[in-house]
Design a protein around this nucleic acid. Structure first.
Lengths: 195, 195
DNA sequence: CAATCACCTTGACACTGTCAAGTTGTAAAA
DNA sequence: TTTTACAACTTGACAGTGTCAAGGTGATTG
């Protein structure tokens, strides 16, 4: 009848639990995500998730992996709307990054700022690697011969990550925080040569 | 007799609890830090902290504030050993940043990657502002007229923050992660004009 | 001397993650 | 067909967590 029933019919409670977890993150933030609440939202008992994940860490890791799929999709969506200019393409990736982190704050925090997930997980590893590859492919044409390989990628990635961290702190905390005056484009212009 | 007794004599259980929390972070990571364990380590009952902090969030916020004091001290220690060159001075700040994050991983995570502290807290605000001011003062002489105010500061701060995040993920997760091949100095050279 | 009050303790509560044992339905094996 | 095996899920229990209400204690103050 309802969604849960239908999803369970398909036999993949695993996917249902991951979706439930993401919904909990979206609606109630990081503290709302609980193994038992995930189970309840999926319509199963509190011990059911143990048959599909290795404890809470396993569930959170699987949620983060799903998050990386969404993350990559958001960046690719922005990329598809960019011009042919290499610099525009890289900037559109950045816009996708910022949009994802703004629209999925708790999920983004779980993926990038959490000590609760298992970075050794191969599924998480391959999906996060796929995200990074999108960035790499947009950086490649912009590299000049002076800078070492990956320098631009790491710089952009770090800049985005740090910028999100700043704006988040500025949003939640003191509004006098300097970061909320600086648009990302200003940092991008500073870091990426605009030949 | 022991340290707890002596500290409690002085009347500041608050400071004792903060110290206990930092010790727990150092020895057992983020998951080892608990309100009840803090109380036990300080030699008081599990409900005692409530008289000094506003719940667990208040305790974590106070620990983060203390962390920012240590953070600023580490950067200043590195700065004192730098040459007179402005660029060296800024780089020494960065070294201090990286040393602090490497030597106090869980505490650093609580301060910068945690959704569990109250960024509105005035004490935390002033102490984290003091840390940022150290960076600001070292950036000021390096600004050229083209770049907007704070652009260099935010760039360096974000780069450091992102770099720590990368190296942490590379350390815990897949050793094939690209970040662990890139020394920070390479990023610094790329971002900071070198004349 | 009595009252006040900051500080701490005790005990309880709901909630969390995890484990062991039991139930059910399905699919393979006899 | 009957039996067996097994995977998926439930139930119930456990220690640990944060938080609250009530009570005790000792120093300060009127």
């Amino acid at each position: 009848m309802n969604l849960n029933e239908k999803t369970k019919r398909a036999g993949d409670l695993r996917q249902t639990l991951i979706s439930a977890g993401i919904e909990l993150l979206q609606s109630g933030g990081a503290n709302a995500l609980t193994l038992r609440k995930c189970a309840a939202r999926a319509g199963v008992s509190h011990a059911a998730p143990a048959h599909h994940f290795d404890g809470i860490e396993g569930l959170l890791t699987a949620i983060a992996a799903r998050g990386h799929e969404m993350f990559a999709a958001t960046m690719l969506a922005h990329l598809s709307r960019a011009s042919n200019l290499n610099r525009d393409r890289l900037y559109s990736i950045c816009e996708g990054y910022l949009e994802f982190s703004a629209s999925n704050q708790a999920l983004y925090g779980l993926m990038f700022n959490s000590g609760q997930i298992d970075f050794c997980d191969p599924d998480l590893g391959s999906k996060s690697h796929a995200s990074f590859e999108i960035l790499e492919q947009c950086c490649a044409p912009l590299r000049d011969t002076n800078t070492g390989p990956l320098t631009l990628e790491i710089t952009i990635w770090s800049l985005l990550h740090g910028y999100c961290s700043f704006t988040k702190k500025a949003r939640e905390g003191s509004p006098k925080h300097p970061a909320n005056r600086i648009p990302f484009q200003q940092l991008f212009d500073y870091v990426v040569p605009s030949n």
